[in-house]
Design a protein around this nucleic acid. Structure first.
Lengths: 346, 346
DNA sequence: CTGAAAGCGCTTACAG
DNA sequence: CTGAAAGCGCTTACAG
């Protein structure tokens, strides 16, 4: 393996000078720089980052930690974060971890090893934050869960108001004339907390606010955020309650599964069954019919996260907890039905 | 920051003994182990991986390098690779890199820093392999491109026979009675090589073998592997050639865009336009209609990659280049049409 | 502008 | 079973 020593030996300079050239240190003669760069290129030398990081105590770069490798929603935000960070001169390190892993412990390890100036967490388990976030001392941002009540002054958060958004989704169904509404999705309580249950809770409250009785047995099926699970849940729900004219799927992947379950029961969307999703992933726009959904503003989530993190890194501003507006997208999967109509739009 | 030195100081043992405990070295007294583990737990000590890797020359673990963070197909394979590797006692390190990045240079850097026992590449640019793979000396596997002619004896490859698969896709359309067939997708020549162009080429050959004239201008539109691009390409193609009764989309994402483009032109799938995709991603099974596609056997690709890599790591077997069988999935997006019918199935 | 040297936090023969 | 010491490949004051 080629090391800095080999470059020094070959060029006749010391390893100190070689190191300076590698790190674009200004105090190097043009002659030395040229010769050393030439040999580095010839030998295709790559400095060992372990040694570099071990020695360097200076912080640098920003690390984005993403929970789940198959989360299209987070991937969209990531892409936008990278776009915004491209203009800053921080380099970005992206790390994907499994949904079940502890993102705060991972961050802690990376913090020790890489000394980034800050972290952006895409997804996170409140419990993990409460347990061990205290040991991270650089500015951080959490996207997707409010950290307002965690009590850390180096942690900002940017979130969609799930409660209001779910309320709007149900409102839209009510506005379209639906009264027999079911809810698909929301995991009851898994390791990562009760994901999506606040959406479910808020949807139920909106129904009750409109004097529509809600029977969890007949109008709700939990589901994880996948097409496969959404399919099974919707199928169970439609089987035990064929009266339903509209379903609120708590995630777009669940909505996709729901639409397929409807088709397999001979129901057309939206003629026989209306469906509204949640998140606003790209696919909702390409589906036939286009899927009605509550679109989270991924661009704003990304933009504000980056802005805030850079401000806090560079000017040590205080952390903030912001709610980002969402938008109900009408799509083509929700039909208007007549009041008192027995089922669908006829 | 807590280091091994602190643990040594507090427990009264030397850093050598602490290191042995951390690495589960057998030659440590029970007393020492217990005391040291206790303090490590109390202080929540995490050894600095930089220092560890810098010192250790022993190889360990397997690194999976994935090109593209939004490639559902690769993510499916990754999941299966992880399942298969769970049974071995190798730990797995997954690294996502941008589609435009040089995966071989990245592997080289990781090779220097982490010394894995082997690499699995999910996606790769033949040019990058030819240029610099020679400097990697551990067993590697490339999935998605045959490395047969690269001339490296430490590189196996497992691939779907794109040529045969594209031929079958077109066969299926011909068998269903279509004669006016268009092809959407395949990037002409971008940085990552002419991705998908072998599929296009093979599809054209199959048409010509069946005495169907092929006019690239009227029957082909290039597209990158995304819904958005697939939409635009299909829209252009359908606009300039409304006679087409079937489209072969060179990737499933392209097929999704194609189906939406058809809908926006008032065409029903499959009644007015048949569509067949390529890859067999999960979504094709949930779409309404289910998308006909050529399903690559992700499970076999994953399984054989892992088996082969472990065999070569542990018993230094020679590398192999295997073609994994595919399967045409009928779906619901291709209609049978009458011979001589002017358009669609009427 | 350059070199010699200390040291980052670990691992690992070596000696006992 | 344990400790003292060398050294992994770098960076960085310090001195010149």
């Amino acid at each position: 393996m080629t090391t800095i020593k080999d470059i020094a030996r070959i060029t006749g300079y010391s390893i100190g000078t070689v190191s300076r050239v590698i790190n674009h240190h200004p105090d190097v003669s043009e002659t030395a720089r040229q010769r050393i760069e030439e040999v580095i290129r010839e030998l295709n030398f790559q400095p060992n980052a372990n040694a570099k990081m071990l020695k360097q105590t200076v912080t640098s770069g920003i690390t984005v930690l993403i929970k789940g490798t198959r989360n299209i929603f987070f991937e969209t935000i990531l892409e936008e974060i990278q776009n915004y960070l491209r203009d800053s001169d921080e380099d970005v390190n992206v790390v994907f971890i499994d949904e079940k892993e502890n993102e705060v412990e991972t961050a802690l390890r990376l913090f020790i090893e890489r000394r980034p100036k800050g972290f952006i967490f895409l997804g996170g388990n409140p419990r993990f934050f409460r347990e061990s976030f205290g040991r991270i001392s650089v500015p951080c941002v959490l996207v997707s869960d409010s950290a307002k009540n965690f009590g850390f002054d180096n942690l900002s958060s940017f979130t969609t108001d799930d409660t209001a958004a779910a309320k709007e989704a149900v409102s839209y169904l009510l506005y379209s004339g639906h009264r027999k509404i079911g809810i698909v999705g929301g995991a009851l309580n898994n390791e990562s907390g009760a994901i999506g249950m606040n959406r479910v809770q808020s949807a139920i409250e909106e129904l009750e606010r409109n004097h529509i009785a809600f029977d969890p047995d007949l109008q709700f099926e939990p589901s994880r955020f996948s097409m496969a699970d959404g399919y099974l849940a919707a199928d169970r729900l439609l089987k035990k309650n064929p009266e339903l004219t509209a379903l609120f799927a708590v995630g777009d992947m669940v909505a996709i599964g729901t639409m397929r379950a409807a088709a397999d029961r001979g129901l057309r969307v939206p003629e026989d069954l209306s469906v509204i999703g949640f998140d606003g992933i790209e696919y909702t726009h390409y589906s036939v019919p286009r899927i009605a959904t509550v679109r989270q503003d991924t661009d704003a989530l990304a933009k504000r996260s980056v802005e805030d993190l850079l401000l806090r890194i560079n000017y040590s501003r205080p952390s903030v907890h912001e709610v980002i507006p969402f938008r109900v997208i009408a799509g083509e999967s929700v039909a208007k039905i007549r009041e008192n109509s027995e089922k669908g739009i006829d």
